[in-house]
């Protein structure tokens, strides 16, 4: 698993597209395009873009702790899918929303907390982690 993060509009997707340009075909699934999150993928290389938006669907009804547990299970399923075949790689792009002022609305605080944990769990499960700053990658794992 390869986790790519950084602030919004820092060029994360562009960097991933460039980095994996040789690895075609890549299946690209974007939460920003309102695409549903599948668990079985067609290609060996899968990009899941905007994972924080999928997580956001849960913030109205669940606590940050419950959301974390739910998404830990999802991360496990991605890992299992990857391990079924050696060539498979799951590339996860998430916008960092954890470094601003505490949001006024409770659900946005939940979202922020849950996404912090979610990103920690993705990073732990990933063999490589990059933070993108205006198009420049810093590999931190």
């Amino acid at each position: 698993m390869h986790f790519v993060t950084g602030g919004a509009y820092n060029g994360k997707a562009k960097w991933v597209r460039n980095y994996y340009s040789e690895k075609a075909p890549v299946q690209w699934i974007s939460a920003y395009q309102d695409e549903a999150l599948p668990f079985d993928f067609d290609e060996d290389f899968v990009v899941l873009q905007g994972v924080e938006m999928w997580l956001r669907n849960d913030i109205q009804e669940q606590t940050a702790e419950a959301i974390r547990i739910k998404w830990q299970e999802i991360i496990k399923r991605w890992r299992i899918w990857e391990e079924e075949k050696k060539t498979r790689c799951c590339i996860i792009i998430g916008a960092d929303i954890t470094k601003g002022i505490v949001p006024i609305e409770a659900c946005n605080r939940t979202w922020r907390d849950a996404s912090g944990w979610f990103f920690q769990d993705i990073a732990a499960a990933s063999s490589r982690v990059d933070i993108i700053w205006y198009g420049i990658a810093q590999q931190v794992k």
Partner: peptide, 26 residues
């Protein structure tokens, strides 16, 4: 200035502003 890294997606104005600044920075 560093662009804000907080939940901006629900706010149309902040979204537009952050996008403009982010694209310029890139």
């Amino acid at each position: 200035n560093e662009v804000i890294q907080e939940p901006i997606f629900h706010n149309e104005f902040l979204h537009t502003y952050a996008k403009m600044l982010g694209l310029l920075h890139q």
